[in-house]
Amino acid sequence: MRVLQFGDSVLPVGAFSFSNGLESAVQLGIVQDTATLEQFIGTALHQAATSDGIAVLAAFRAARDDDLGRIVDADFAVANRKLNEEMRTMTVRMGRKLAEMAEHVLGPSVCSSWLAAIRRGDAPGCFPIGQALVFSSLGLSEQDAFAVHQYGLASMMVAASLRLMRLHYLDAQAILFRVNSEAEAHYKQIASASIDDMAAFAPVMDIVASAHVKATVRMFMN
């Protein structure tokens, strides 16, 4: 039930405000139909696994060791790999909201120490780190934390697609089902990686996210 609660798409951290670059991809014609939408989301998930996903595991393991220094290192590793302003805004805004919610709901925990570091300006407060710390505090597994991280991104983008495209809601769910089937393979790929192995190379994703900054019509914050 904790996995369901903290993996829910209506978790009040503001995910509905973001599209993870999908809005510009639709405007630029990169995403036009169900096939290109699935490809775009699949690319985003692979990029997330090999970058933010590695940080999720690093922060989760650091939380189990009660090592705030390693948690902050993973936090900065995420922030430093966000190449454009809107992506940084998304991750730190959602991260801080998750930390504040965790302190209110869970009480004193490693999330509290992280939130204090954010408030002091000693940590950026990236969302994937918050997910790792919440799941560690709940005594859940790192596989659960990684799965929720990947599912949350896919769910955010699928929900955005229904507002951006002519897409049947059943087709949207079919896409979500298929892209989520890659989560186990992604976990196995990065389970032994360190934050030094983080890689987010996906040029088209970065270009469309950058184009969104100057868009004259915008539904989402990125």
Results as ranks from 00 to 15, higher is better:
181 S>R: 11
3 V>F: 04
173 Q>D: 14
217 V>G: 00
123 A>S: 12
222 N>C: 14
42 G>L: 02
39 Q>L: 14
37 L>Q: 01
130 G>Y: 07
198 M>S: 05
50 T>P: 08
110 V>N: 14
14 G>M: 04
221 M>T: 07
138 L>D: 01
186 H>V: 02
160 A>T: 13
58 A>V: 05
54 I>F: 09
219 M>W: 07
15 A>Q: 06
210 S>Y: 12
81 R>N: 13
27 Q>G: 03
58 A>G: 04
186 H>M: 11
90 M>S: 12
167 L>M: 11
87 M>R: 15
155 S>L: 04
210 S>T: 09
4 L>M: 09
45 L>Y: 11
15 A>I: 02
115 L>Y: 01
42 G>K: 04
173 Q>T: 08
68 L>S: 11
168 H>M: 06
148 V>M: 13
194 S>Q: 07
160 A>L: 09
20 N>F: 13
41 I>M: 01
129 I>V: 13
47 Q>L: 14
32 Q>W: 02
161 S>H: 07
196 D>H: 11
26 V>N: 09
125 G>L: 12
160 A>Y: 14
54 I>R: 08
152 G>H: 10
196 D>Q: 09
14 G>A: 05
139 G>M: 01
24 S>M: 11
207 I>S: 03
25 A>P: 02
159 A>D: 14
129 I>Q: 00
138 L>C: 03
222 N>G: 15
132 A>H: 02
199 A>N: 12
162 L>I: 14
8 D>F: 11
210 S>A: 15
168 H>E: 14
78 V>P: 01
11 L>E: 03
217 V>E: 02
141 S>I: 01
221 M>P: 02
174 A>V: 07
177 F>H: 10
177 F>W: 05
72 V>K: 12
176 L>Q: 00
208 V>P: 00
144 D>A: 12
15 A>W: 05
196 D>E: 09
63 A>Y: 10
86 E>P: 00
98 L>D: 10
22 L>W: 09
165 M>V: 08
113 S>N: 13
55 A>K: 05
